[in-house]
C-alpha cells in the first residue's frame, strides 16, 4: 500500500451514551503515513472517536474499514489492536518499575527476554529515560510518566499510533521535549492519529486536520487547505500562528 492511502475509515458512526448522542460521523478516513490531527473543543467527541478508531470501544453503530476491508465486531480483537498503540492524556502505568511498563506490550505479544531487553534499551535511550528503568513508576513526575507511556507505545513499532492530547497535563519543559522529539520518534511507515489543542504541534506536525464539533466532523482536509477561520475561540483561533 502506498503512502497517502486510507488505512482506516469509518462510515455512519453513531455513538450514544445514556441516550445522548456523542458522535454522528458520516465519513472519516485516516491517511497512511501521515499525521492525522483531530481538533475540536472539549466535549466535541475527539476521544470517543479515537477510542472507536483504535478499536478499544466497540459499543457503537456504524462501519469501520481497515485497509479497505470491513472489520466486523468479532474481528476487532487483540490481534488487530496489536498493530496499534495509544498514548493517553493521563497515562496509566502498571505497578512496578519503568522497565516492566515499557516491556509489558512486548511480553503480552510473547517476545523472548533478549529481544525485549534490546527493544526496551533502544527506545528508552531515544526518549532519554534509560536512567529511570529501574525506578518505581510511583516516584516519577508527570512528564516522566508521559515519556514512559510514549516509550511503551512506540516499543512495539505500531502501524498506527493514536495520541490523545498527550501534552495537556504536562509542564512547559515536557511539552517542549515532546514537540521537539516526537516527529523523530515516529517512523516513515507509521501513521499517526493525534487529538491535540497544541498550536505548535498542529503547525509543525499536522498533514491533515479534521475538525469535530458536537460529535460531527465539520471538515477534514490537508493542513494547507484547512480553513482555520471556522474554529471558535480557544481552538487554535490565531490562524497566523498556525499557518
Amino acid at each position: 500500500m502506498n503512502r497517502g492511502n486510507k488505512i482506516l475509515k469509518v462510515e455512519n458512526i453513531d455513538k450514544n451514551i445514556n441516550n445522548k448522542q456523542i458522535l454522528q460521523i458520516r465519513k472519516y478516513s485516516v491517511i497512511k503515513g501521515k499525521f492525522n490531527f483531530i481538533i475540536g473543543a472539549n466535549g466535541s467527541g475527539k476521544t470517543s472517536l479515537l477510542n472507536i478508531l483504535s478499536m478499544i470501544d466497540n459499543d457503537y453503530q456504524g462501519t469501520i474499514y481497515y485497509k479497505g476491508k470491513i472489520i466486523s465486531k468479532k474481528e476487532r480483537n487483540c490481534e488487530l489492536r496489536r498493530r496499534f498503540s495509544v498514548i493517553w492524556q493521563e497515562p496509566y502505568l502498571y505497578r512496578g518499575n519503568v522497565y516492566h511498563n515499557i516491556a509489558l506490550p512486548l511480553k503480552l505479544r510473547g517476545f523472548n527476554k533478549k529481544i525485549i531487553h534490546k527493544k526496551v534499551k533502544n527506545i528508552s535511550q531515544k526518549i532519554e529515560i534509560d536512567d529511570l528503568l529501574e525506578q518505581s513508576v510511583y516516584t516519577l513526575s508527570g512528564g516522566e510518566r508521559q515519556k514512559v507511556s510514549i516509550a511503551r507505545a512506540l516499543v512495539t513499532e505500531p502501524e498506527i499510533l493514536f495520541v490523545d492530547e498527550a501534552t495537556t497535563n504536562l509542564d512547559e519543559e515536557s511539552i517542549n521535549f515532546f514537540n521537539s522529539h516526537f516527529a523523530d520518534l515516529v517512523t516513515e511507515e507509521m501513521t499517526v492519529v493525534m487529538v491535540s489543542h497544541d498550536r505548535r504541534q498542529i503547525k509543525e506536525l499536522a498533514d491533515r486536520i479534521a475538525y469535530l464539533k458536537k460529535g460531527k466532523i465539520l471538515s477534514s482536509q490537508a493542513r494547507e487547505e484547512f480553513d482555520f477561520s471556522q474554529l471558535g475561540a480557544g481552538i487554535c483561533s490565531s490562524i497566523e500562528e498556525i499557518v
Binding site: I56, C78, Y94, R95, L104, L108
Partner: peptide, 28 residues
C-alpha cells in the same frame, strides 16, 4: 482500581485472559 487500567490493557494488546491477569496483578 483506576478505570484507566482496563482501557490501557486493551490498548497494549492484551487478550481477555491477559487483561484478567493484569487486573489480578494490579490488585494483588
Amino acid at each position: 482500581l483506576d478505570e484507566k487500567l482496563y482501557k490501557t490493557a486493551k490498548s497494549l494488546g492484551a487478550t481477555k485472559k491477559q487483561q484478567f491477569k493484569l487486573l489480578i496483578m494490579e490488585a494483588r
